[in-house]
């Protein structure tokens, strides 16, 4: 039986992610684990994350997850979610500046307070709710999901959409930002597929059957 490991480093929406995976992949074993050995033996790995970036990165280093992610993320399907996506970039301006794992070039920065959108309405921070994602990369994880489908976001920091060839999905809130990024066998989303109803579940189902290539 194939194993999907949800990495437990003490931060994150582990249970929601695991329940969504169990729902879409009843024939695979979904484990929540902080054990490097067990995670390294899994067929697919998910890195969730919520909360402050500094705490997440520190917890990843303390748990040995940072090193593990570098080692295993490019030889099997690997999915980062929310702060689990932001952690894959080089740097975040959150908490006075935090160096992240650096698997993708670029940095994470805060939405500005007090800005307004095209219709004149204020852009509140956090960016919370359902927003549209433009699929900018033809990727197996988008299979069966309409371009411009809405996903559930909740975040105050965002990844700049560069370099373009690693951006899999774009969303606009004040500015265009990376809603999803991809390289090799890594895919990561700023939104929460586990909270995005049918389209989110479809993305997890695609992940559970993905061979890591695109």
């Amino acid at each position: 039986m194939a194993v999907i490991a949800v990495i437990d480093y003490g931060m994150g929406n582990l249970h929601s992610v695991a329940k969504a995976l169990e729902h879409v992949a009843p024939n695979q074993q979904v484990i929540i684990s902080g054990d490097s050995q067990r995670i390294a033996e899994a067929d697919r790995v998910v890195l969730p994350g919520v909360g402050a970036m500094r705490d997440c990165i520190k917890a990843m280093h303390d748990a040995g997850v940072a090193e593990l992610v570098h080692r295993i993320s490019r030889d099997r399907p690997f999915l980062g979610v929310c702060v689990g996506m932001q952690a894959l970039l080089e740097h975040s301006t959150e908490n006075g500046g935090v160096d992240a794992l650096g698997l993708f070039p670029g940095r994470v920065q805060r939405f500005e307070n007090g800005l307004i959108d095209a219709s004149g309405a204020p852009c509140k921070v956090p960016h919370m709710g359902w927003n549209q994602v433009e699929q900018t990369l033809d990727h197996p994880l988008w299979q069966g999901i309409d371009n411009q489908a809405r996903f559930y976001f909740v975040h105050s920091y965002y990844a700049r959409p560069e370099p373009r060839d690693q951006v899999a999905g774009l969303c606009t809130y004040q500015v265009p930002f990376a809603a999803a990024i991809a390289r090799d066998s890594i895919f990561a989303t700023q939104f929460h597929p586990e909270k995005s109803a049918a389209d989110g579940l479809r993305l997890y189902r695609n992940f559970a059957h993905w061979d890591g290539r695109y």
């Binding site: 095209a118 309405a121 852009c123 709710g129 606009t172």
Partner: peptide
Amino acid sequence: MALAKRII
């Protein structure tokens, strides 16, 4: 194209 208002 914008953030949707929510019904709860």
